[in-house]
Design a protein around this nucleic acid. Structure first.
Lengths: 337, 337
DNA sequence: TTGAAAGCGCTAACAC
DNA sequence: GTGTTAGCGCTTTCAA
């Protein structure tokens, strides 16, 4: 029996005031006397009335909706970070429209769907076409990419310091005595992989090491596993392998131990990137980099809010520092669990 | 320059028709002649017009929105499954409003936020209060729980066969020669833990084994680790430990190997539940259960759709079969990676 | 089939 | 401070 939805008119009638008074009572900085507001709120309460956000959106010309596009195989930490975002939005009476997309394809369809619902901004951690970007711009929708980049000065970008953190990994490896290193790049098209590889190479150069051997593979455990086997076959004297992601690094570690007869870190050091939960497990104890995901997402939302206020703003690129997590895979001791 | 949004009036003017004709042209089964529709669609296209979903919602009295409430520390597989859902919705011109909530607290605030946006249904994998449930019912919003249960005949439920799969694990352990078993339960309040434990105990009984020793701990790696250490101290002759989740099982395996001087599976078998990616890694090779998450979510959405059509429907509880994944942790051989 | 007109539930000038 | 009156951009009768 969803009788009939209760509207502001019902509340107005019960409270003996005009409908617009009800609207004002529910608006933070409206001019209503305290008494009237209390009376209206009481009436609303007794009727279980809550303003219809859809109708409010139409009236104000702003939906209060944030669009979020996330990749399917995104790290767990990203999901955890979403809690912060959805809570933030909830507190301000806004909502988050989600689109989860296939990792490899353009998220244009997702953008269209979000635009249809009049989102005010989109935070996206997937690849967009230029046309999708310009449709956002035309619609006056603020767009912010997370760990992605695109040449368009209407879109902001938030990234972790992929290069600097990777440089730090190289330094760590060098200080542990690594000489000949390899870097496990993801698919050659990957944007963050390039940043991470470049940073790593820089670190090697800083430390007077030869340029890392570069190997490509899938962004997966299996990819890392197979790549490690091949690497060791061709370069039995490798002293360290760094991988663009943790899951690849886990594959590397397992391959080294079960296929290549190498002990980590005694014979060879390994490092990853992302700090997945598994990285802390006793079986891996992987040195890696933790990105400040929650802060990154929060910042992304903030950037879109600013851009909504001031659409003329120039492009902003925010780089946020990651945290190098040193563990046994590069020879560091740590508490047992 | 978000000039002014283009509306159906603009399209109507360009195409030389009435505004309502434009509306019809964008409605699947409306009575418009093919020629008129083509002409209107062309005009719309040239103006980059797309119907405003918010306005449409207000007009029709249905938002096309699905609310989704997910727990913060939900498994990765759940997120992957969300891709299927958001694509499904996108195809039907609907959207998904997301709320990520703290695992331990009631998701009532999330429900309120979703209701404000007039979602037509909510798929929830978190705990709700009865008042939240009845607010949904009052609002005529279909509610479906995933791997949760509540006494309310207006809400449907989709679960994996937690008990049956756990029974299968017990059988597997027994067939491998286990005699004295332990079950790592999560916090005692956990609903699925109870189902899983009961199923496991049933399996033990079937196989003529003594009742499993029951231990409680957090749903985490560390929880499993510490619990295993304690268990072995008190029961050095344990032949198998099953855990309510994979992450606990990983902790168990690591504790056994690095603290308790036990080899898995030679000295003791271990099993988990969830089939996280890590379960397949060479270092763990954990026997576990994979829930058909994508199918479960799809079914949940389907149930809500049916309930929207027929609100008088009685409660439905759907149990979907999980898949027992046999790996080395219970003595099974498998290909190397 | 098509157009005119009345909402959907709210916000926001605008008067009082 | 409060009520009146237009919209917001659609959908949907209702006539034609």
């Amino acid at each position: 029996m969803p009788s009939r939805r209760v509207t502001s008119y019902d509340v107005a009638e019960l409270a003996g005031v005009s409908q617009s008074a009800v609207s004002r009572a529910f608006t933070a900085d409206a001019s209503v006397s305290a008494g009237m507001r209390a009376r209206i709120l009481a009436a609303a309460d007794s009727l279980d009335y809550r303003p219809n956000a859809i109708a409010r959106s139409l009236g104000k010309g702003r939906s209060g909706l944030l669009g979020m596009i996330v990749n399917q195989h995104t790290e767990q930490s990203y999901v955890n970070a979403l809690r912060g975002i959805t809570e933030l939005l909830r507190a301000s009476g806004s909502g988050a429209l989600l689109q989860v997309v296939d990792a490899d394809s353009l998220a244009d369809g997702a953008v269209t769907a979000l635009l249809d619902y009049q989102v005010e901004a989109i935070v996206c951690s997937s690849v967009l076409s230029e046309s999708a970007v310009s449709r956002c711009a035309d619609a006056g929708v603020a767009l912010c990419l997370v760990n992605r980049q695109i040449k368009a000065d209407t879109v902001d970008e938030v990234m972790s310091d992929n290069a600097a953190s990777s440089t730090a990994i190289a330094h760590e490896l060098a200080s542990r005595g690594a000489v000949k290193t390899a870097y496990l790049y993801g698919p050659s098209s990957s944007f963050v992989s390039r940043l991470r590889y470049d940073g790593f190479a820089t670190g090697c150069a800083d430390a007077g090491l030869p340029a890392p051997i570069k190997a490509h593979c899938e962004f997966t455990y299996r990819g890392g596993y197979e790549a490690a086997v091949t690497l060791i076959k061709h370069h039995p004297d490798l002293s360290a392998i760094a991988a663009a992601t943790d899951s690849m690094a886990f594959g590397v570690m397992d391959a080294l131990q079960s296929c290549c007869d190498r002990q980590v870190p005694k014979d060879i050091a390994v490092a990853g990137y992302d700090d997945e939960a598994t990285a802390g497990y006793t079986s891996y104890r992987l040195t890696t980099v933790r990105q400040p995901m929650e802060a990154m997402l929060a910042r992304a939302v903030e950037l879109t809010r600013e851009r909504i206020e001031q659409p003329e703003l120039g492009k902003r690129q925010i780089i946020m520092a990651g945290e190098l997590i040193l563990r046994q895979s590069t020879g560091h001791m740590q508490e047992s669990i």
